[in-house]
Amino acid sequence: MKRKGPTILVNLLLIIGAVLTAFPLLWMVSVSFMPTGAASTYPPPLLPAEPTLDNYRQLFANHNAGRYMLNSAIVASLATVIALVLNTMAGYAFAKLRFKGRERIFQTLLGALVIPAQVTMIPLFALVKEMGLISTYGGVIVPAMASVFGIFLIRQYALSLPDELLEAARIDGASEARIFWSLVVPLLQPILVTLAILTFLATWNDFMWPLIVLTDQKLHTLPVALAGLSREHVQDNELMMAGAVITVLPVLALFLALQRYYIAGILAGSVKG
């Protein structure tokens, strides 16, 4: 057995890597069940000696965590639904419908991918203020409602739809709206799941724009609320870990459930260059 050494080495490295990667998340969960002060000892405890739900109770009872969670869920869901509708319609049209300037417009959109979103943030703030949308759900989701990346993702997938099928439906007298809704959307289903999970996770995790636009604390999303809370309660590690758990857990669970679709989206996005 000549390959025994390398085999042990590879598997050992895989395990070490996994421990290093998973440790922060596992420790976060473990400390979140410790009573106040238990984690401020040396050496740092690995597991709670007396597990308690106190931190979670305190988060929801005294720190409005339920409200923030609801805000995050509303913002992420709204953005996902709107982005799905707008990007899917546009992506399909860029792939399959003919109109003047189609290629030019699409190239312009792709060119815009080099502009980072932060460039738009300050004028966007002024614009959103003019529209009276500061501290509203609407104000938060505005920049996520349509995206060049989303349009691109749908278009690449829609290109593979057979033209004959669409033509046949037209000859049968179906309207464009009907073709889209009852023929195209079902065929696009896998990529729609991908786009939905990418959008949901991106808006749920987003920080800078919600921080700027949500001046009213009642409307804060979980990341914004957690950042504020962590500045006030620097010493209260157990409470902060519980806050981190309720922020991370929903998206982590969603990812684990729909992993295949998420990774397909990343790979489709990386070939754009």
Partner: peptide, 18 residues
């Protein structure tokens, strides 16, 4: 290995600060 990518940056920054 992929799990940290989908986590919320603010939340894991709080964890790492600790």
């Amino acid at each position: 290995y992929f799990a940290p990518v989908v986590t919320t940056l603010v939340a894991v920054a709080v964890v790492w600060r600790y």
